[in-house]
C-alpha cells in the first residue's frame, strides 16, 4: 500500500504547503532518490506513523528559510530561533497534511520535529520522492517524502 498512496500523500503535502506558505510556489520535477538524502544546510524531519510509516523532510538553504520567516511573520530570524522556525514549518505542513489525509480515511500521526542543521547525509530508506518547490521571491525548498513498506 505505501508506494501506491505516495502520489496522494505527496499531493496532500503540497496542498498543506499552500496553507502554510503565504506566497505562491511552483512545483518542479519530482526526483526519485535512492540510498541517501543530502540536507545542505537546514531542514526538518517529521516521522509519520499509524496507517502510513515514513518521514516527511523539508530542507533548504538558511537564507531561504530566513526570507520565508520575513514573509510569514515579518521577522528576521537567526540561529536557534531560525532553527525552531524551520521545525515549526515542518510541524505545520505535516500537521495540515495529516488533517487532510484524515478526511480521506488515512489516519497519520506525526512526531515532534527533528531539526537538521548543517550539511547532513540521511540514510536508512530504500527510495524517497523529492520535489523542489520554488517559492515566489523567496527561493527553493525541497519536500522529501519517504514511505516505508509495512511488514
Amino acid at each position: 500500500m505505501p508506494q501506491a498512496v505516495l502520489p496522494e500523500v505527496l499531493n496532500t503535502s503540497f496542498e498543506a504547503a499552500k496553507v502554510v506558505f503565504p506566497v505562491p510556489f511552483v512545483r518542479e520535477k519530482l526526483e526519485i532518490v535512492n540510498q541517501y538524502i543530502h540536507s545542505e544546510e537546514l531542514g526538518v524531519l517529521i516521522g509519520l506513523t499509524h496507517d502510513l510509516q515514513g518521514r516527511l523532510i523539508i530542507e533548504g538553504r538558511a537564507p531561504v528559510f530566513q526570507a520565508l520567516g520575513v514573509a510569514m511573520y515579518g521577522m528576521e530570524l537567526a540561529e536557534a530561533m531560525l532553527e525552531s522556525f524551520v521545525g515549526e514549518i515542518g510541524n505545520m505542513v505535516a500537521g495540515n497534511m495529516s488533517t487532510r489525509l484524515a478526511e480521506n480515511g488515512i489516519h497519520v500521526e506525526i512526531s515532534p520535529p527533528t531539526v537538521i542543521v548543517g550539511s547532513t547525509k540521511l540514510t536508512g530508506f530504500v527510495t524517497a520522492a523529492k520535489v523542489p518547490l520554488h517559492l515566489e521571491n523567496i527561493g527553493v525548498i525541497y519536500v522529501i517524502l519517504i514511505l516505508d513498506e509495512s511488514e
Partner: peptide, 9 residues
C-alpha cells in the same frame, strides 16, 4: 494551538 486539526483530534 496545534497544527493537527482533524476532527478526531
Amino acid at each position: 494551538c496545534s497544527a493537527m486539526g482533524q476532527q478526531a483530534m
